[in-house]
Design a protein around this nucleic acid. Structure first.
Lengths: 156, 156
DNA sequence: TATTGTTATACTCTATAACTATA
DNA sequence: TATAGTTATAGAGTATAACAATA
């Protein structure tokens, strides 16, 4: 007796076997998560990609731009733009070290640290808010499986 | 004793609490799934979004363009472009019914049906290939949780 | 007035290649 | 010759608003 709302199957449209495709489900989940992200955090002028980069810089001050891009699966060309924007906003400082002048090392400015601190709670709390349809245990299980899917089981 | 590859944590970069953010994990998972999708199926000229739309039209011939867009969380403006492309490729026919001449109803051409048939197996089989790090039971659990996350538990 | 779909514009993110400056 | 980052361009996708045709 299914009387729940079924956002993806209204209008009598059927999906067939595609409902078991991980890729298909991931796309829908991400669209949903982003929509909710902007509903909840949009007023801060917060963008998911931008905040994630600031977060990682904060935890790894002086890390190389290319290394951060690689672990976040952000393409170098896009990373340049992301960093440039954060520099323009006064949240990130770039530093070219003497021992390898091809590379760029990143750290947050005081304003950048303040920005991360101010939005940290909202950003981290967003996760459970993003999954109101899952109970706590299911949410933990989803996180665990996604981490494994991403090859991140033992990442700190 | 963790000697596995850890693609997201090389270079000694740490992630902190963000590794429990569903939104963050979903983005990484989708990037990974799309990369693999293009590696495996790119030679067919197959695009995930385009194929999904063809698939749903095939299962729901004569469905309205707007209804399909809604259930797939595709924005109307983008749907127009997707459909236009498939029409140009000779895979989809548009039909404006007499009883409501604002709407557009879609169905596959013979070439469109052939295209879906030819690529169906590859597309559906892609899911397990996308998650080599998960065993069969974990894969089923991930699908189940993502379906629930998406509010699709009882979607056919 | 409301609804369906279209057009136009802008922004995020990805993909790729060509380029610079270093090493 | 290889590496780090930049620039430029293309494309997929989303967001939004204005619009025409129809209801």
């Amino acid at each position: 007796m299914n009387r729940q709302t079924r956002p993806q199957s209204c209008d009598g449209i059927v999906f067939g076997e595609i409902t078991s495709s991980v890729g298909f489900l991931l796309r829908l989940a991400q669209v949903r998560a982003f929509e909710e992200f902007y509903d909840v955090l949009g007023h801060h002028g917060l963008k998911p990609g931008e905040f994630t980069v600031l977060w990682v810089i904060r935890l790894n001050p002086g890390a190389r731009q290319g290394d951060i891009a690689r672990v976040l699966s952000v393409k170098p060309a896009h990373m340049t733009k992301l960093v440039q924007r954060s520099v323009d906003e006064g949240r990130v400082e770039r530093h070219v070290p003497e021992d390898d002048r091809r590379s760029v090392r990143l750290r947050l400015t005081a304003a950048g640290e303040r920005f991360v601190d101010d939005n940290k709670q909202d950003f981290l709390n967003f996760a459970p808010a993003g999954a109101p349809s899952l109970d706590e245990e299911e949410g933990r299980m989803l996180v665990k499986l996604l981490r494994k899917f991403n090859g991140m089981e033992d990442v700190v």
